[in-house]
Design a binder for these strands. Sequence first.
DNA 1: TATGAATGAGTTTTCATTCAT
DNA 2: AATGAATGAAAACTCATTCAT
Lengths: 209, 209, 209, 209
Amino acid sequence: MNDDSSLSRAERNRQQLRSDILQAAFIEFAERGYHQTAISDIAKRLGIGHGTFYRHFTNKRDILEHVIDDIASKIIATLEAENAPDAVTSLEAYKKQCARIANRLSEVLTANPAIARLILLEATSIDAEMTKRLMNLIDWGGQLVAAYMINGVKLGYFRKDLDCQSTGHAVVGMILVCALRFLNNPNHPDEQQRLAIAVQRLLVDGIKI
Amino acid sequence: MNDDSSLSRAERNRQQLRSDILQAAFIEFAERGYHQTAISDIAKRLGIGHGTFYRHFTNKRDILEHVIDDIASKIIATLEAENAPDAVTSLEAYKKQCARIANRLSEVLTANPAIARLILLEATSIDAEMTKRLMNLIDWGGQLVAAYMINGVKLGYFRKDLDCQSTGHAVVGMILVCALRFLNNPNHPDEQQRLAIAVQRLLVDGIKI
Amino acid sequence: MNDDSSLSRAERNRQQLRSDILQAAFIEFAERGYHQTAISDIAKRLGIGHGTFYRHFTNKRDILEHVIDDIASKIIATLEAENAPDAVTSLEAYKKQCARIANRLSEVLTANPAIARLILLEATSIDAEMTKRLMNLIDWGGQLVAAYMINGVKLGYFRKDLDCQSTGHAVVGMILVCALRFLNNPNHPDEQQRLAIAVQRLLVDGIKI
Amino acid sequence: MNDDSSLSRAERNRQQLRSDILQAAFIEFAERGYHQTAISDIAKRLGIGHGTFYRHFTNKRDILEHVIDDIASKIIATLEAENAPDAVTSLEAYKKQCARIANRLSEVLTANPAIARLILLEATSIDAEMTKRLMNLIDWGGQLVAAYMINGVKLGYFRKDLDCQSTGHAVVGMILVCALRFLNNPNHPDEQQRLAIAVQRLLVDGIKI
DNA sequence: TATGAATGAGTTTTCATTCAT
DNA sequence: AATGAATGAAAACTCATTCAT
């Protein structure tokens, strides 16, 4: 048992450090930007030698990838937690679902603005591959939204001629703008609130009388 | 007059070179990204010495600012060309206006994808000040859209309770997503077409029956 | 006795590991070169932790020294095995002696080209001290050859005015070139054979008619 | 003319600096060894910024190549200056030729011991490609020597059965050992002298009575 | 005693910016 | 005014060595 626990202790320490480095990189990348962050900045933040970094990640690019993947997973998890297109059977229910998702996203965003900053502002300027990842995430979001719409059309509480795919993407755009405006001015919860409501209202009713 | 004209000729040459540098920087930044572009890349593209660059711009950062400003002006000009909220007096007219603007944006985008790439992907990762500019542009877009809506509400063909400001921003989000999807896959005009239509339809009618 | 034997077992293991490390270092240094070899490469080859290395050798430099010493010992042993200047009493016997030594060297070289690679190519570029060792080995070789010649002059089957010391060194040079050419092109045994014969013939007869 | 001369002045400066860097690299590589020399050492020796180095050479490896090429050219030039196998028509003339070449090599070596140090000790441990170059130079030397011998056999003052190629290589080995012993102990001109004589005597007469 | 995690000195290389010509 | 040579700060990455476990 002694051996066992001591081994797992080492492994736990290792995992902990790795995760600390990820966290530190996440913060640095979000605060200063990827290109403005040196490996030594990450190391300094943790009080470790910068050589230690390379025991856990092969590359600066490598850790960015992990940071982005982590964020993407978190976003996906957040949205999939609520994911049950079939469970919604009426417009009323759909509206409530939207509100719930909006709240959840808002909470995540508020709790961790760096996530949005990194995904929306930094990750776009690394290289084509990283941009592609972002685009895929956005696409995935559109598909997710579309799934609800397909259900709504099938059940008859959305209009028959709805182009679910495209509309799904449009919705993602509105979500993005919410995130951007929050980043730009995090201290106006009322404005964000109004924007979220306007988006939901636009989504369901449009702007016409 | 000889002096005068020779001076103004010199001045014209100077302006021309400055504008050439801007153009070259624009292309390089869009193609390789800001951080991946060296001043010497810009100079090489023009066949000038890279020292010359510094006679026209103080900084790498400086020229990016000018490039972005140019783009922003172009976008603003594009949108303001059509800008006449008061001229629209019916939902039908508004729809047509939307279609016209959508076409125009699409044309600009198609003609010069680099614009979107630079604004949406590159400029975001420079620093806070540059990000702020971007945000201001997005905000300006929202205001522009809102102006139409305010008119529509006043004239009674939009719903009374429309939150014009917020909805304007939401619309900008949808435009952004159009641009992003175009960047991601420029060779699907039909998909872009469908997305544009879906956005306009969503805008006016929402998704409900 | 139990204690004693268990201690000596431990000691034997220790010696075995030390010798394994030496062997592994030898292979790595010869294959990749001293500077291109990391301590961890040596450790990896043995499947031991690279910290263990430092329980047996104080330095990267230290182990190279031991590797080179081992090689030198082997070379010396090879040459001294045949060493019996006084036993040769005629030119014919000397020629046979030369042929035997040439064969033996050739066998050693063919069996282990790494030896030559390490001694001739790698060890030269470490530092002055290591170069000195090499030079001493070469010098030793010259002395050895000279001893035969002194005997030959004494017994009268070599010319009276032979500068044995210097000629001994010259012979070593010819041996070195044999080794170098073998390293450069190990797959031409016939060429090596001809070179060895030419060297022996030159040695005894020179080139004149 | 002003333009012309000012251009050529700049170009001359450029060439001068390039050649200075080569010279400095040569010295550093010879003194400390290639691996022990940092680019900044070369720059420091010249009192230039180390960035300047990269305006003239793409690489550390690149400059080594140029240094080695320079040395090789110098050696080749030295040996080819005297190169006239057909001009030698008797054993006596051949001996004189040998003496002249030996003297010349000795002069070059004495004037610039670093040449030998670099070629014989350092260049061997860079990589396979560089080693190959060295081997080619040695091979070239063997061919050169062989050419004289072929002439001698043809004209009848060397023995008929001489394997000129192989013997040529053997001679190169003796030259190498001269260089090595000189490197090892540059302050024994008499020893070098005796070695040179012994080599020439061995070459022509061998060691037998 | 063996291990391998941690360290940071040291190296190569890039490139924005300056400035003499 | 244009040029491009020179510069050195800055950054990524490697690896020999130490030392706590």
